[in-house]
Amino acid sequence: MQSLSAEEIVIIKEIVAKHVGSPGSAIPILQEIQKELGYVSTAFLRQVAELTETPASDLYSIVTFYSQFRLEPLGKNYIQVCHGTACHLAGAERITDSLEHETKTKCGCTSENGEFTLEKVACVGCCSLAPVVNVNGETHGRLTPEKTAKVIENLRNKGNEGNGDVLR
């Protein structure tokens, strides 16, 4: 099992301490941990369980129920393809195909080299710009497969910048 670094333990302890005595705070605690550390591993869950005296299985049930939580870290570039109704009609499927092809990553997965994470979402609420893709928190609208390929090319050219802290 993954062991936690001293820094991670401090962060988790601080977050949990902020919520002492506040009812129903399991979800906000896990959200803040994900925001700080990028994901919620089972090791993090065990640490929270110990600190809050909650069964780790309860926390695991929360993390697996809500789509926001990730048990694995994100790739360097985080790409969310909107599959809301308007985007669906405007060809979100083709945008996804094109993204999968360009990044060589299956939707819902992170590429082997850790460069891209591809995810489906519904919906980002920018329906009049459909089809829409969120790249590291920035919205790109009115996409075509060609424009999508360019977005990926630009990301590659940008090199190591990645999503940094923007999306966590």
Binding site: P23, G24, I62, F65, Y66, S67
Partner: peptide, 18 residues
């Protein structure tokens, strides 16, 4: 935290309760 069903009122309350 990303669950469509939480728009339903009793599910929403469960979610606020953590």
């Amino acid at each position: 935290a990303g669950a469509f069903v939480c728009g339903e009122e009793t599910a929403l309350l469960m979610s606020i309760e953590g």
